[in-house]
Design a protein around this nucleic acid. Structure first.
Lengths: 108, 108
DNA sequence: TACAATATGTCCCATAATAGACATATTGTA
DNA sequence: TACAATATGTCTATTATGGGACATATTGTA
């Protein structure tokens, strides 16, 4: 069927909205950078560079959309991220705009 | 209410998916560049540079997502754009990915 | 003892994107 | 007759982005 452009559009959305995709993943379950990388690569079939991901995670924490706790149990320390109320607000706003796009309304 | 991030997210979507927003507008009614600029600025409350818009419209036509007919009636000639079956396919794929995002599914 | 995998971080350079100017043409209005 | 609005187009200098290297640390395995 008409899935010619699927890969291209998914790629564009993940590339430009990677922070939002991270919020979506972390909302489902707390995750750390390395796991987010692996999960995003598996889910979206695109390559995520860690050199871009870790600075992004740090900036999301600075913006108050994520919080982190360092876990020392396994191997090298992991920074496990959780979504904050602000992060949920950001996601909810995103979802409400998507709904309007689907209803063919222009965001106001 | 929680609309703190609304402007920012709309801006990001329109900036990164301007071609898709153009397809959405043109699907509703045939439009020309100047009108698309004015409509996008009114609907999304962002500034659209014509120096970016016209090359984008030409590339959408080259890709077969839009077709144009030149109208000579009024003032300077207008290139009135219509969406093509390919353009509709592109939009439909976009909408199906948005639906998956809303259902919290990962695109496959 | 290497090497692969896990885990997080910075930095640079080449390429890509963007803002804004330059360019032209028509119509209506002050 | 200017000027604003309509209408479409290109070009360049600056800015932003991205790929990939450099860096370090731990655990498990061949």
């Amino acid at each position: 069927m008409g899935e010619t452009y699927r890969k291209e559009i998914v790629r564009r959305i993940v590339k430009n909205m990677l922070d939002i995709q991270i919020l979506r993943m972390v909302q489902t379950q707390p995750l750390w950078g390395y796991k987010i990388k692996k999960k995003a690569e598996a889910d979206f079939h695109i390559k995520i560079r860690h050199g871009a991901l870790y600075p992004l995670l740090n900036s999301l924490e600075r913006k108050g959309l994520l919080t982190s706790e360092t876990e020392h149990q396994t191997g090298r320390a992991r920074k496990v991220y959780n979504i904050t109320p602000r992060g949920r607000e950001y996601l909810d706003t995103y979802y409400s705009i998507l709904k309007e796009q689907l209803e063919s309304k222009q965001p106001t």
